[in-house]
Amino acid sequence: MRVCAGRTAAWLALAVVVAFYPLVVPGFWTYQIGAQSLLFGVIALSLNLLAGYGGMVSLAQMAIAGAAGYATAYFGVNSTDLGIALPWPLTVLTAIALGTLFGAVVGAISVRTRGIYCLMITLAIAVGFSLFARQNYSVFNGFNGFAGVRAPAVAGIDFNEPVPFYYLTLGVAAVALGWLYHFSRTPFGMALQGIRDNPRRMRTLGFDVIRLRIAAFALSGLIAAAGGVLFVWYNGRISPGAIDVQPTIDILIISVVGGMASPLGAFVGAVAFVLLQNFAIDLISPDRFNTLIGLAFLVVVLFSPEGLTGIAQRLMRGLRGAVRAERPPGDRETSTEEATARRIS
């Protein structure tokens, strides 16, 4: 009971901090740090769904986000003289529908693979997609891609401005995060976790493992696509370079550093990633700051396979233990999370 109250208080505190954050920091911190962390967090969250609950590590999430981003550019406002400008709700719906479909296709292709093979086949899809975008001029506009992409203005609120855009990404992130916590307790969510732990047993129990896995890919595609729409609005442009190998790996890094087993980990990882990317150059000589970024990630992965959220959980547990002297045996939730983390690593 006390644990439950403590957890609610922690979530409330987090909600207050993120809600009032843009009111106390300058525009740069709202937009480049805050909003960017949130949108990368949404894309990484789609990977946490697959990896944390489904045991499938996909490297195609950035490609799916990119496809949705390209769709937003093609079916929306851009300065590239290419595409069809639809009203913005249709633009967004089309982009998210295409992203979801892309997610399902990636799932259908890679569903029978596990572990390193799933990683490789999804990486191949991601790289293939970015090369295709680079070579195709009729839809993707080749190397240059699209520029001049703008978020809509709704009811007098211009979502290109830092503060409205921050709240937009915060809203999307909160819905996605809340939904994922809810999802993990639905029958589908439970079945997916069952498949992760023992697919053969689930099959004997009568679950259609293949179809459930593809559905999970489609759902994660939906989340990645929502992140992709925010991604292209944030940058105002998209080109093949934004979805090639480096950004693809960045999403994996964000997930791993934050902690794949926990939905919140995606956002913790994204904040750490964005902060390091922006400020590592000020901490160390400009020629060597990437070394610092690499070292920081290495340290996290080496000392906490469950990522930064794992470290936080261990600290919390330590505190709780000190208060209550001893922990009741078989704390179900923690042990599942630990098991998941072990399995993924």
Binding site: N235, R237, G241, A242, P286, F289
Partner: peptide, 8 residues
Amino acid sequence: ASSDASPN
């Protein structure tokens, strides 16, 4: 400040 040659 540093970029990686990408416009973003």
